[in-house]
């Protein structure tokens, strides 16, 4: 079973995203912040991470830096608001598959996620 980690400080997103991907037979983990996500990352080794850019505790880019700093190569899709070019470029240099703007169209997200998970499997 593919493993998906969703990092977002919005409880609604965590809840409904988990629901949504569970229905498609994906094992979903959620984290409300960077440090919780790092723990899950070590324990569960997910195949793909959906990472919010703006979070209170630790920004998406900071999380990405830490994670890559520890040598973790897990694939990441960034979910961004309308970020500066700078943020996105920074994230790109840290190795991400892509980013998707909020508010997203769920179907599109699903297509990308499914594609990446299939490739990984």
């Amino acid at each position: 079973m593919s493993k998906l980690l969703i990092v977002d400080d919005e409880i609604d997103i965590r809840e409904f995203a988990r629901n949504y991907f569970k229905k498609r037979g994906i094992q979903v983990f959620t984290a409300s912040g960077g440090s919780e996500a790092l723990d899950i990352l070590k324990e569960e080794r997910p195949d793909l991470i959906l990472l919010d850019v703006r979070m209170e505790e630790m920004t998406g880019v900071e999380f990405l830096q830490k994670m890559r700093g520890e040598g973790d190569p897990t694939k990441v899709i960034m979910v961004s608001g309308i970020e500066d070019e700078e943020t996105i470029n920074q994230a790109r240099s840290l190795g991400i598959i892509g980013f998707i703007h909020k508010p997203l169209v769920l179907e599109e997200l699903q297509k990308i996620v499914m594609k990446e998970l299939k490739q990984g499997a």
Binding site: E10, K23, K102
Partner: peptide, 25 residues
């Protein structure tokens, strides 16, 4: 403000999308 609104919209979209998905499935 727009980030806040955008996040609300985002969540709203997610919720609606998931519910829609459930019905369709």
């Amino acid at each position: 403000l727009s980030h806040q609104i955008n996040n609300r919209l985002h969540a709203l979209g997610f919720i609606a999308g998931d519910a829609l998905d459930t019905i369709q499935l």
